[in-house]
Design a protein around this nucleic acid. Structure first.
Length: 353
DNA sequence: AATCCGGGGAC
DNA sequence: GTCCCAGGATT
């Protein structure tokens, strides 16, 4: 075996790598950065339309830095992990204010910026600036855990340390951008989670997991925990003209900074709470569903409440918003809220309970 | 070291 | 249904 891991991988990349993703044409530090943040814990096919819309609205880091946070969150609606959008916005302002609008090229400086950790910093440095900095994302963890037969769950510090060391040992000094893209492409298209295509793999000849015929054992699985279930009413409080009341959530916690429907724990009596809104023209309980987060389930019970009058006095400026269904405000919405507002716009598809 | 933070695609 | 994805911040 004369060729190194990187040489074999790069040769494979020249023939089979992905070279037409939106953020690869053209490659700029800004576009690489935005794509890397969007791609954190999010699959490529999901990101592509978000990236295109984002670049249309915020074509440069200066445009992004100058935009209102609500507009940034609006472009993030449905993508999840909304702290990414807030960090992205903060980071853009830091780049404009402290770095004259130019991205720092040093990986250690990049890694100190909000939302940029060790792996994302290395991705930006290698892809945008051709520096020999190794990434370690989900794809790379899977490729390396199999190739070197590293047992255990990658979040364990000892396992992570081994994987980082191996990742850096394979990183070549030249073609750094292509190498980073290559090892991600290998994980995404060949060394897949289920049924890896080892016959097509350029580094199969010294892959220990394949030699053991045990590729699916790597990487080790995180011990599963059962998720708690929470239940809540989602109140669609509708003014006489059809507008729906939204509340802004606090910046920390679930759906931070997004606009949501008023929530009411199911333990609280609905009727008592609704008495605070004055005279009602009627209520409808809609069909509920289970929304699952990474760490708990939320059973959502929507209730449409038609108000006789638009309430006064309960509104706090900046924290409440009457949402016009025909002229939607450009703000960030939690995914279930967006779903409900869309159902409300198409009354025929509403299922009553 | 463990937890929090979303939503959706693949199976 | 489960798993996990171009992870990072917080405690």
């Amino acid at each position: 075996m004369s060729r190194t891991f990187a040489q074999r991988l790069l040769r494979w990349f020249d023939q089979h790598g992905r070279k037409h993703l939106p953020w690869q044409n053209p490659i700029t530090p800004y576009r690489v950065w935005v794509s890397e943040i969007m791609l954190q814990q999010t699959q490529v096919d999901t990101v592509i339309p978000y990236f295109e819309r984002f670049m249309q609205s915020f074509p440069s880091v200066k445009h992004l830095a100058a935009a209102p946070i609500d507009e940034v969150l609006h472009h993030w609606t449905g993508l999840g992990y909304y702290a990414r959008a807030r960090n992205l916005h903060r980071c853009a302002q830091m780049i404009v204010d402290e770095y004259a609008g130019e991205f720092p090229q040093d990986v250690n400086i990049l890694a100190e910026l909000p939302g940029i950790g060790r792996s994302t910093a290395a991705a930006i440095a290698s892809i945008a600036f051709e520096q020999p900095t190794a990434i370690l994302d989900g794809n790379v963890k899977r490729v390396l855990a199999r190739h070197s037969a590293i047992a255990g769950w990658p979040a364990q510090p000892k396992v992570a340390e081994q994987l980082w060391r191996i990742a850096e040992s394979h990183m070549p000094k030249k073609r750094c951008r292509d190498y980073t893209q290559a090892i991600m492409d290998l994980g995404a298209t060949v060394c897949t989670r289920a049924r890896p295509k080892c016959a097509l793999c350029p580094v199969a000849e010294d892959c220990i997991a394949l030699a053991e015929d045990n590729t699916t054992a790597y990487p080790g699985k995180k011990p599963a925990k059962d998720k708690p279930v929470k239940r809540a009413y989602f109140l669609l409080l509708q003014a006489p003209n059809g507008d729906i009341l939204l509340e802004r959530r606090p910046p920390q916690g679930i759906w931070g900074g997004l606009w949501c429907l008023p929530e009411l724990p199911v333990e609280q009596p609905l009727e008592t709470h609704l008495a605070g809104y004055g005279e009602l023209k009627g209520t409808e309980r809609w069909e509920g569903w289970r929304h699952t987060f990474s760490h708990y389930h939320l059973d959502i019970q929507p209730v449409l409440v038609k108000l006789a009058k638009r309430p006064v006095g309960i509104m706090e400026e900046g924290r409440h918003l009457w949402y016009n269904l025909r002229q939607p405000a450009a703000v960030g919405l939690a995914a279930p809220v967006k779903t409900l507002l869309q159902k409300l716009s198409k009354p025929r598809q509403v299922n009553l309970l």
